[in-house]
Amino acid sequence: MTERDNQSSIAEQMAAHIRKVADHRDRAAFAEIFDYFGPRLKSFVMRQGSDPQLAEEVVQETMVKIWHKSGQFDSKKASASTWIYTIARNMRIDLLRKMNRPEPDMNDPSMTPDPDPMAYDKIAFDQEADQLKKSITLLPEDQQRVLQLAYFEDKTHNEVAVELNVPLGTVKSRIRLALRRIRTELGDLR
């Protein structure tokens, strides 16, 4: 089994565990999610500058949210890791910054609907997620560096420009090029 086969089977296992938590309040499945994502979430939050205790607090609160919101997980819309990433991000903003993070409300009738809901495949654990993984690793070094600083080191694109000592326009164009390339490879753009 190659490493990539192994990873997508983990993604599928985690999605199945979340569904078991949603349907049966399955504590064993929840423990599996904690074993896999807990240490990764802690690592992620520590890279963003938190000490180990605070990082564990973010992990605990994130996992409590996962326990309660498991019914909202839809594996057709996002992979387990993407869904958990967004919960952890919001929890961290809430706990560490005491800040509200405005989000669109998917049930709002004032929202402009997707013109063609089938136009894009959702990036779940199927081929698209594999394609995304591959596309990220194939990005040029300078584009990968900008993305790592943004996600792992909690820097705005302004701060990334200062850190790398390059003009703001350069950072913006690296982000634009990285996204264009990834979306082309996902089949969004031609």
Binding site: R40, S43, A78, T82, I84
Partner: peptide, 16 residues
């Protein structure tokens, strides 16, 4: 797409 990238980075980070 950007959130999926965040999820991918989370999955591949070395665990603490």
């Amino acid at each position: 797409v950007l959130e999926a990238m965040g999820g991918d980075l989370l999955e591949n980070i070395s665990p603490a």
